[in-house]
Nucleic acid binder design. Structure first.
Lengths: 333, 333
DNA sequence: CTGAAAGCGCTTACAG
DNA sequence: CTGAAAGCGCTTACAG
């Protein structure tokens, strides 16, 4: 900018005025400055601007895994809202590692992002307290922060699963198994709670041997299904706690069928919709979340928080939707 | 930092040394400084640091759509490499809009990212020339830049499609239709070229009525399939130019089958793998790209470019892989 | 081992 | 309408 000022024969401040379209510059002067800008290929350094102005017009997003369609769709929606406000977005994936999440969030804060959207991992988010105190807006999404009062956008996990289990009960199933993700994940805990509540509310007992809570590895899913489907009193229906489990289960069922030809296929309802769930046969009945809506809600909450007014902590809970496609309507044998 | 220095009773520079773990600070002094840092909740402002040091340790990634699994997986891989180097990543989606792409790329450059990875859109990328001249590293990915000499990581689109068409020919098909994306998209053009080349090389004529190039909307796909499958000399096999088209075609075929029950299902090979392609019946035979590998290659190229040495322009072309699952092996009637 | 000064590239607050 | 000075929060280059 200094070089431009020298080339145009004006003061630094005049260049600044032209670059930022501030009023009150003689058109002729402005032309001179613009000519110098073009000649020198000048581009304003937004980093310097940011330093002086106090806010960076950027936010950070930390999700579990950007390659997972759920999180990428969510992130895309955040990005969309941010762009509307002229903000840029840093992204990062925690891979369920608390330390990696912490590093990413703090790195974003060190760059002085104005806000962060975080899918929290682990037991401790107090490290964000100083950042929030220093003025960084924070919204947690998909899960609440462990030990921090902060805005959060969640999904009605319990209600969603209840809806799914009630659907299976209505179709005559009594032996309904539940496969959830690792139990330390908030949503996994909420969803298995919905399972228990639905059974209990309908007057049925909860059989612990029909519950499996583990990361969706091939081996874990196979072991769980063998236990649940090959015993003397097998499950006639399955509820899977997220789409990765749904897909893992479908894959295992297909493999078993191909290898051994045995086994009747159990009814299935899965949490989370996924691409081409409608094209499988039977189509997969799901309890769908709306990741774009979740992301949008989180971003809007973030920008509301960033206006600086002293607001109460908000905790939104978005609804789910039952999508009937066939797999959840098969009757028990 | 000033406040910390005052609180600890030392000079600014000493605080800087402690914060940055520079050697040559008396342990006792360091302790005093650390105590002051904790007491004041001091956090280094990386924006200021960046301004002074000249590089920001951040890169920007502009893809078509972060919600698309192909691009989110690619972006995730870039992120992974960046993290290894201690870099942060800005992301943005162009939605195939040249102007939006330009805004995003230039906004990243105004923040003085050290490099950009771009899935280029449109006819003109000269606007990046000044940025590159100013030292921003740029790598184009999935497609080459329109009118700019720059590093690029591409996929062997022509060879991939040829492999797919040859596969269908080997299974006895002679009436093979091609459904590609909008013809102004680089990869769409390359892929239809592969289709033509494969047919010509095998001594067959190219029938223009068996080619459709359009965005994968429901209506466009339906119209194309009606033309190709319901005529007097219908196609017995289809090749789809990307996974969105593959899914759209599968959905249309399923709907038609359900509504009218008619039509034999054509054989199908699709470009791009997609989730649960193996679980459909028949499983979908695909020409798979490896988006994570593409992202990794692009990021590695970017960091090599950022070392500042004067290197030649690199253009890498990654291979594809035929995955046989059933849909591409059905014989003609 | 410690520190005073200058400067990265801008904007703010003011003066003319 | 235009500009000179100070300062955002750091690091660099030097001196002691």
């Amino acid at each position: 900018m200094n070089d431009v000022a020298a080339a145009a024969g004006v003061a630094l401040k005049t260049v600044s005025r032209v670059v930022n379209d501030e009023p009150g510059v003689n058109p002729a002067t402005a032309e001179k400055v613009k000519a110098a800008i073009d000649a020198l290929g000048f581009r304003r350094n937004d980093g310097a601007r940011t330093l002086r102005r106090g806010h960076t017009a950027s936010i950070g997003v930390v999700v579990r895994d950007l390659a997972d369609p759920f999180y990428s769709t969510l992130t895309r929606a955040v990005e969309e809202v941010a762009l509307t406000h002229g903000f840029l977005v840093f992204t990062g994936s925690s891979d369920e590692s608390p330390s990696r999440q912490r590093e990413l969030a703090l790195a974003f804060c060190a760059r002085r992002v104005d806000g962060v959207v975080i899918v929290p991992v682990g037991e401790d988010h107090l490290y964000l307290q100083p950042e929030i105190a220093a003025g960084v807006a924070a919204v947690f999404v998909d899960r609440p922060a462990a030990n921090l009062e902060a805005d959060a956008v969640l999904v009605d996990n319990v209600g969603g699963v209840r809806k799914g289990i009630e659907h299976l009960l209505a179709h005559g199933h009594r032996r309904i198994a539940f496969l959830g993700d690792a139990p330390d994940i908030f949503t996994a805990g909420e969803r298995v709670r919905g399972y228990r509540e639905a059974l209990t509310a309908a007057g049925h007992l909860v059989d612990p041997s029909l519950i499996s809570m583990a990361s969706p590895t091939r081996a874990a899913v196979r072991a769980a299904l063998e236990r649940m489907l090959d015993g003397p009193s097998p499950a006639t229906a399955l509820f899977t706690g997220n789409s990765r489990l749904t897909v893992a289960v479908l894959r295992d069922l297909a493999e078993q069928q191909q290898e051994h030809g045995r086994r009747r296929r159990p009814a299935l309802v899965g949490f989370d919709d996924f691409e081409v769930a409608d094209l499988l046969s039977p189509g997969v009945t799901v309890i769908a979340q709306d990741p774009a809506r979740i992301g949008r809600a989180a971003a809007e909450l973030l920008f509301r928080r960033m206006d600086g007014k002293n607001r109460e902590i908000v905790r939104r809970e978005l609804p789910t939707r039952l999508i009937v496609r066939g797999s959840g309507e098969m009757p028990p044998p």
